[in-house]
Each structure stands twice: as structure tokens, then as C-alpha cells.
Amino acid sequence: MSRLHDVVTLTIEMGSMNAVFDGIQTHADTEHATLLGCWYSDIGALNKVMVLRRYDSEAALITERQQLLLGGNPFGCGKHVTDIQIDTYALFPFLPAIAPGKRGNVYEMRVYGIKQGCLQKVIDAWQQALPEREARSPLLGAMYALDGQVSRFLNIWPYESLNERSRLRALAVSDGVWPPKGGPALLTTLESSIYLPAPFSPLC
């Protein structure tokens, strides 16, 4: 199965969430793209909707990207969109494919900037440390960016609640299993946002 994904982040008008959800539910799953998840921001920058999709090939991804941009009406809800950001990602090679299912009520989206030339070191550090970390709470996926000006990767963590997130993260740190050994020295920036799944999201 292809490990190519894109993340489309829409900034939307206030009060337009339901109309945007209707558009995404209707248009996000196509012959080129498989909808995996749709979430809306709850902590961090608000009025954001994130769409995660998987592609069977690079050609399919490019075709869908062109249609999304040239059509001028992303997901049929363009009139409610004030900004759009599209990022292309590849799943870390040692991770299993992301599959739909019930994972949690709260999703933490973390984006790390990576020092120049250190991507493979980051992947190696995560591969070594992740089994112990996932014994405490599962990772949905970690993906490195294939475009943009900054080397970076996205990791998505589902939790049952914000309290559970705080407890499990603190446990992993106190047990000495997280962050990965040497990992922080490879990074430049960190952004973290909390998203909640849309009612129709395949990942919920």
C-alpha cells in the first residue's frame, strides 16, 4: 500500500463548520484519494479543519492536487474557506499503514522542524524508542514532509481525553522512554495543536 498522504488544512469562516463538513464528507473521498480523517481545531489556532488522505501513487496525488487547486472550490465549500494549506507527507518506513477506526476523542497534531540533514537520524531514533512509548499509548502515524521550505515531520497521537493525554505523556517521560534518546537535539521547532474528529471522520 502506498505511504503517500496529504494533509489539507482549511481556515474557515466563523459559523461555517457544518457547511464545510458537508462539503468534505461529499468530496474528499475520490477516485484518486482515500479519506482517512477529518478533524477540527479545539486548542491552538481555531477555525481550522484538517483533512488527511492517502494516495495509491504519486500520479494520483498530483492529479488530485491539481484538481483541488485549479477548481477553486476545495471540497465544494470554497466560499467558506479563507486560507488553505496543503502538505505532502510520507509515512515513516517502519510504521504500519494508517487505517480507519475508533482511536480516541482527542487528537494531538505535533509538527517538528528538523535540522538540515537529520531526517534519517530522526526516523532511526523514533524506530528505536517507539515500541516502549506505544506500550503506554498508541501513535496514529508519523510522516515526514516531501514539500515546503522547512524539513519537518508530523506525528498524530489519539487520546481518550485531555487528562489522559497529560497523564500518559508524563508517564512516558518519567519512565525515561520518551522523548527518543538524542531526538530533541535533531529538532529546531515544535508546534502542537489539539483537534477533535468530525462526526463523519473515518478516524474517530
Rank of each mutant, 00 (worst) to 15 (best):
Q128C: 11
T9F: 05
L91A: 11
M1Q: 11
T189M: 10
G101E: 07
L146H: 09
N18L: 05
L130R: 11
P199M: 02
K48C: 15
L61E: 14
L186M: 04
P184F: 01
E64W: 12
Q116K: 09
W39I: 07
Y107D: 05
K115R: 14
F92H: 09
A45S: 15
I156S: 07
H80M: 02
E132N: 07
L95A: 10
P202C: 07
F75E: 08
S151K: 08
R136C: 02
L46D: 06
F75W: 07
G15L: 01
D147T: 06
R53L: 11
L70V: 11
V7T: 14
L154S: 02
A125Q: 10
G117K: 03
D147L: 08
A45Q: 13
L36W: 00
R54V: 07
K102R: 05
S193M: 15
G113S: 03
P179M: 02
G71I: 02
T188F: 07
S2C: 01
F200K: 04
S193F: 14
R133K: 04
E31R: 01
I156H: 02
A135M: 01
Q127Y: 13
G37D: 01
S57V: 12
Y195H: 03
E13N: 03
C38Q: 09
Y89C: 01
A97V: 15
R110S: 09
D56N: 15
H80N: 00
L140T: 01
E164I: 05
G37H: 07
A45I: 14
G101P: 02
M14L: 04
A142S: 01
M17L: 15
G148D: 13
G183R: 04
S201W: 10
T30I: 15
A172M: 08
E64D: 15
G104Y: 07
G183S: 13
P158N: 00
T188N: 08
I123C: 13
L139C: 03
T82D: 00
E31D: 11
S201Q: 06
L186A: 04
V8A: 06
V20E: 07
I156M: 03
C38Y: 05
P158D: 06
D42T: 10
P199W: 06
I84K: 10
S57A: 05
S201G: 08
F75G: 02
S137H: 00
T30V: 14
A28M: 00
T88P: 11
D87Y: 14
V20I: 02
Y112V: 15
S41K: 04
V106P: 10
V122R: 10
V150L: 12
G183I: 12
Q149S: 12
C38H: 10
L36H: 02
D22F: 00
G141N: 06
L46S: 10
N105E: 05
A60I: 04
G141F: 08
E164H: 04
D29V: 11
V81L: 01
S161P: 06
L119E: 11
H27W: 05
